[in-house]
Design a protein around this nucleic acid. Sequence first.
DNA 1: AAAAGTCACGAAAACGGTTTCGTGTTAACA
DNA 2: TGTTAACACGAAACCGTTTTCGTGACTTTT
Lengths: 340, 340
Amino acid sequence: MKQKITIKTIAKELGVSTSTVSKALKDSHEISIETKEKIQAYANLYNYKPNHLALQLRNQKTKVIGVILPKIVHHFFSTVIKGIEDGANAKGYNIMVCFSNESYKKEVETLKVLSNGSVDGIIVSIASETLENKDFNHFKGLVSEEIPLVLFDRVVDDILCDKVVVDDVGAGYKATKHLLDNGRKKIALITTPKHVNVGTLRRQGYEKALIEEYIKADENIIVEIDEEANIKEQIRKVFIQEIDGVFAVNEIYAAKAMRVAKEKGLKVPQDLSVIGFTDGLISEYSSPSITTIAQHGFTMGKQAVELLIERIEKESETFKPKKIVISSDLKLRESTKPSS
Amino acid sequence: MKQKITIKTIAKELGVSTSTVSKALKDSHEISIETKEKIQAYANLYNYKPNHLALQLRNQKTKVIGVILPKIVHHFFSTVIKGIEDGANAKGYNIMVCFSNESYKKEVETLKVLSNGSVDGIIVSIASETLENKDFNHFKGLVSEEIPLVLFDRVVDDILCDKVVVDDVGAGYKATKHLLDNGRKKIALITTPKHVNVGTLRRQGYEKALIEEYIKADENIIVEIDEEANIKEQIRKVFIQEIDGVFAVNEIYAAKAMRVAKEKGLKVPQDLSVIGFTDGLISEYSSPSITTIAQHGFTMGKQAVELLIERIEKESETFKPKKIVISSDLKLRESTKPSS
DNA sequence: AAAAGTCACGAAAACGGTTTCGTGTTAACA
DNA sequence: TGTTAACACGAAACCGTTTTCGTGACTTTT
């Protein structure tokens, strides 16, 4: 990189002190108009830009927010990033994005790098491996260092920090209720392993809705997908039973379930209603299009970053963790059209 | 944030100088073993972490790479990010991600922020508005400041920097050829406005393939989509003509074209073959699934970042811009299954 | 016993800015 | 004419770290 022009260069070149240059560039009243004009003209001419690092060091703040996500090639998370970036930008912050790839080790490392002063605060959605391990000491360390931290979507209660979540239980309930209202009785649930708590919460909603209709949850039509293995194969198992509805906790599972249904000669939505989660492109463009629970990733990201910035900027106040719950909406599409 | 422990704190507390502490923490031979042990123990106990900002200022490098993308909620770009992050991480860099939202103004601003010393180099895919304006002075400014810059996918030739692109002409050719090989003759092209040069290049490939078969490109079955207006409506126009193939320059257009075909009672792939671009989730999960040109976003991102880091780390050598061309593959799916 | 070398550490500059607190000069005032 | 205030600028400290170059106290060599 070319040698950058600094305040020192200007000072030397113009025969004044660095303080004078600094003040002149800030239009301070302490400096005479002629001097100011001279300095500003020179700075302009040579395209002077103040060095961010120096300012950050002096001000002890970076105006950067760290973000750690489990993955990025994923509609929900990319939407959240967008929300975070938007919110951050509006307040003059930039974001530094990292990925844990669902790995505990990478999450710990990334957290360490980010907490070395490179960022003013951190937003995280926890890796699934970490959720499985239940080892949250790296987060607790952050909290005790009082580095502002906001968790979203995949959160755990015993980390004392701000959180933004969707009402997963409510959403699971809403989805299941919708199927029941369509006259479906044997509703399969395609979910994640138990340690991914959002899956567990959505399942609670599912069970709650069933109980209200005096239907007993049937373990045979519930499957917890192991992402390492063949997903479709696992889904086929629930189709051995006779079912008339499917609630999948994400849109990929929903799409795969529709494929399996097709194999079995079941017509969606006539024979089978399908509902997914996360309103992504698959749901929109598959055919038939899939009814989903919209998670409002953009809103989540934006709320998370606003919470974080608030925490960063007024740290004087006594700390009391906040939890924001984003409500989710049912987005009706073809896969649950009532057979008229 | 809590008051962080610094080298000064340690020095004062232990009654030694900061230089001693610094050296002790680096296990320098200049320091006696007892002193080292004492200092290291203290540092460990109080969880000392060197301040990144100070190091960055001193070393004049941040180990951060800036990335500016037109958008994120998009399969291709999120895949590229993944590639960039992966490659960067492997070399000890982090990434700072920003979005231009296809806006010229935002691109200029973002570039300004990043070039203030916050990053060691920048990777960009140009905003469509900028491509339309043809105003590239902000990039040329970067180049003349000798800030390492790599452009990818949406590039322009007269910016003198490294570039990573897909072979768009070849890909367009490959896609069209595939349709022709399936016996299709009247192939519609659904593309972007001319200023988005990837669209234009893919069109060249399309025309080349047609010419080889002595087919004249027919303006009536080519549509340049204006994203502001109703996309489906625009696609319907080409269906007024009798067509038996569709080449869409991205997967959204391909999916929408299939919807229109359905409206018109055309069966895919029996009556109509459809081929898209970007191997995303829509192509994979739509039904019928869509044959596409896989763009290898991950590879692009990785190559781009490797090129950039090389440029950053050995800047001694004389500058000669490199251009890496990534070849693209045809991913066969249901939408172009030969009618047997 | 003088010269040289080793050891263990400290002082100070440097990275690029901001900011507080002088200070010398001039002008206004008593 | 002496005091004071305003003006325009500079010196120096500071943010946290690294690194070069001393330097004083011993030890070894001749």
